[in-house]
């Protein structure tokens, strides 16, 4: 049904129609939009509401979205609960771990991707197209296939239970999609700019740093937010490489806390406080940088 109403709207775009049929359709559209909004928001509200409840409000068997009394204290108590299991796992420590991993991986990922994309986009050399196709092909490889040998590689370097596999690896342009996005962007920049700089005697490093970087800033920003989100959320990598609890990023710390609870007493108010803490920075970033998020996704899909 939505399909048919949509097709008709294109005609209406050119000449917005009036009349009863149109009004009824618009009412239906907004009704559906609001229904969708409820489906999206209800779980999020439920998460935040649970995180503010006392334990005896959890299992009432009724839908109660407004905690009474509301206990923001949960957000502090949950960390006390943490440190009773492991005194080193303080909120600050876990947050610092997460930020350390996220920022280092993000910076490495963006800069290496931009340099590699520059090489793929602006220079002609034999083997370029083949290598580029190979790079895109690696997207298909399930991460689990390379995960066991990668683990063994880092074990050889004696760098297990360090942050290196999660950060240093990013310097090697580990995200082919980001390279692809940046290359698409480089292709749109007129060549005259570089040629003029070359005539003025600038070298490649100078051209990259002083001419290209400022020009590609929009896509760098878009990729930065996607990359921040991706690394903040990275669970699988951290799960394999980190074993010392006080080194855990938030995602792993949550799992650690979850597995310390008994199935009979799931402390959902605490779990939801942790989930909210994990989601809040990303949601905040999203609302501040929605344009970049949407742009990043769309550029990726232009030519799939």
């Amino acid at each position: 049904m939505a399909a048919q109403t949509a097709a008709s709207s294109y005609i209406e775009d050119t000449a917005p129609p009036q009349g009863r049929g149109y009004i009824i359709k618009q009412i239906a559209v907004y009704a559906l939009l609001i229904l969708g909004a409820v489906i999206i928001l209800l779980p999020i509200v439920w998460m935040i509401s649970t995180s503010l409840k006392t334990e005896d409000q959890l299992f009432t068997g009724t839908v109660n979205l407004i905690p009474n009394p509301a206990v923001p204290q949960n957000y502090i108590d949950v960390w006390d609960s943490f440190s009773s299991i492991n005194p080193q796992m303080t909120a600050w420590r876990i947050l610092a771990n997460t930020l350390f991993i996220t920022v280092l991986a993000m910076v490495g990922e963006i800069f290496s991707a931009s340099i590699v994309a520059y090489g793929f986009a602006r220079f002609r050399w034999r083997g370029r197209d083949l290598l580029f196709a190979l790079m895109l092909g690696t997207v298909m490889i399930p991460s689990i296939v390379t995960r066991i040998p990668s683990f063994l590689v880092w074990k050889q370097f004696d760098l297990l239970d360090t942050y290196d596999p999660l950060t240093v690896h990013a310097l090697f342009a580990w995200g082919p999609l980001y390279v692809f996005l940046m290359r698409q962007f480089f292709l749109t920049i007129p060549r005259e700019l570089e040629e003029a700089a070359l005539i003025d005697g600038a070298n490649t490093v100078q051209i990259y740093w002083f001419i290209m970087l400022p020009l590609i800033r929009p896509i760098m920003l878009a990729i930065a937010v996607l990359s921040f989100q991706g690394n903040w959320n990275n669970f699988g990598g951290a799960l394999i490489y980190l074993t010392t609890p006080e080194k855990f990023p938030l995602a792993l710390a949550i799992r650690f806390f979850d597995s310390s609870l008994s199935i009979e007493a799931p402390q959902w108010h605490y779990m939801m406080a942790l989930s909210t803490m994990m989601a809040a920075p990303i949601l905040l970033l999203y609302f501040l940088a929605q344009k970049q998020f949407i742009e990043g996704i769309n550029v990726g899909a232009v030519k799939g």
């Binding site: 290496s112 340099i115 590699v116 520059y118 090489g119 793929f120 602006r122 220079f123 002609r124 050399w125 083997g127 370029r128 290598l131 190979l134 790079m135 690696t138 490889i141 296939v145 390379t146 040998p149 990668s150 590689v153 690896h169 310097l171 090697f172 342009a173 580990w174 390279v179 490649t204």
Partner: peptide, 21 residues
Amino acid sequence: TGRALVLPWFIGFLIFNVFTI
């Protein structure tokens, strides 16, 4: 220049894709 610029990816590709697969 082009080949030198894609080297970071290529080294990673050799270690973390070719070798691991």
